[in-house]
Amino acid sequence: MLGKSKDEKDVTMPAVNIPRTTGEKTMISKDISIEGEIRGKEDLVIEGTVKGGIHLEGHHLTIGPNGQVEAEVIAENVTISGRLVGNIQALGKVKITREADFNGEIKAKHLSVEDGAYLKAMIELEPHHKTKSDDKPVKQKSFGQKSLGDEAPLALAGESDKGK
């Protein structure tokens, strides 16, 4: 009846309090401090303080705006809105939001950084693969020629001018 199986009809919710979960996600809240190694097989949100290592292979680490983390991080994807000092190794994407303060190394497939974030980082992304259009001859000799000037740049001075 109505496409429901017998089992589904029979399910009743208990009246007692159930621990609140948000899908397969764990949260380290604002007043929690952890020192040591965290390993997990679900997504993790940190709003507290963590010092050590975080290994969430295949899962998403979020450092919330209140999060303070000093750690080596391995995860599928990482979102930073708080403070992270340490190195990140992500198979997927690292997202650094405008509230973030990051100092360390990032190795990832993709990286997005919002304007306003503080970043002191060493970054290694998947290399750019050349397409045919990249091989077209480039006439411009200088970096910003077209957009900055719309006209061939004029040389200002050369080595021979130095010291004159």
Binding site: G144, G149, D150, E151, L154, A155, A157, K162
Partner: peptide, 27 residues
């Protein structure tokens, strides 16, 4: 000025420099 910039980066050797139509200078 260009000369001041060259003096500022004096230990380096200036290879090229350009000025763009909008005035931005590249060294």
């Amino acid at each position: 000025r260009n000369r001041q910039i060259m003096d500022l980066l004096d230990p380096f050797t200036l290879m090229t420099s350009f000025i763009y139509r909008n005035g931005t200078r590249e060294f």
